[in-house]
């Protein structure tokens, strides 16, 4: 679904507005959500203490072996574009719905990961296919820098060659990804 404000980007955030008994929903992209709400943290009218309390309650859900049911709410409701799982559901269950939930809830999850593991960046084994993907992205980035230099120096023949190299690498990367 496209953002209901800009109609260009993918809508990944649902803003729920509740006034009295009426509830309205607006599905927007992160950029429009930011411009609509300003600073995303202050707009949620959460103080630092509220957030800490929320994370503490989350943490105790994880650390307990029992499946404690918690009813803490976290407006606005963010839902995963892949599986539809919401952040509130995560708080209640301590589980994510799918691998894409991690990207969707990254902002909220980061402090929690720090509390759980003391870190939030993976440094262990990387699957070979993913390593190739990373190498390819790095290579494209390097050629792009070279291309910029070539344009500045008005070496247009070299720039054209570099542009073709980027296209080729991007094509290879796309094909590799779809395997």
């Amino acid at each position: 679904m496209f953002c209901q404000i800009c109609n260009k980007n993918k809508a990944t955030i649902t803003i729920v507005k509740i006034v009295g008994d009426s509830k309205t929903e607006l599905k927007v992209c992160p950029e429009c959500a930011n411009s609509l709400l300003g600073n995303s943290i202050s707009c949620l009218s959460f103080s630092q203490n509220d957030i800490k309390e929320l994370l503490d309650s989350l943490l105790s859900t994880f650390l307990s072996d029992q499946e404690g049911k918690r009813t803490t709410s976290f407006p606005p409701e963010i839902s995963c574009p892949n599986c539809g799982y919401t952040y509130n559901e995560f708080i209640q269950t301590g589980k994510l719905g799918c691998s894409q939930c991690y990207e969707c809830f990254r902002g909220q999850l980061n402090p929690l990961l720090h509390r759980l593991h003391g870190h939030s960046q993976h440094i262990g084994i990387v699957p070979l296919a993913f390593q190739e993907h990373l190498n390819s992205l790095k290579k494209i980035e390097e050629i792009k820098k070279e291309l910029q230099q070539a344009v500045i120096k008005e070496e247009y023949e070299k720039a054209a060659q570099l542009r073709d190299m980027i296209r080729e690498e991007e094509k290879r990367e796309k094909n590799g990804d779809s395997k």
Partner: peptide
């Protein structure tokens, strides 16, 4: 898998 969180698991306690 992603570069930041490593192997992605149902519960964040197993992540990385």
């Amino acid at each position: 898998f992603n570069e930041k969180e490593g192997f992605l698991t149902c519960c964040p306690t197993n992540l990385g």
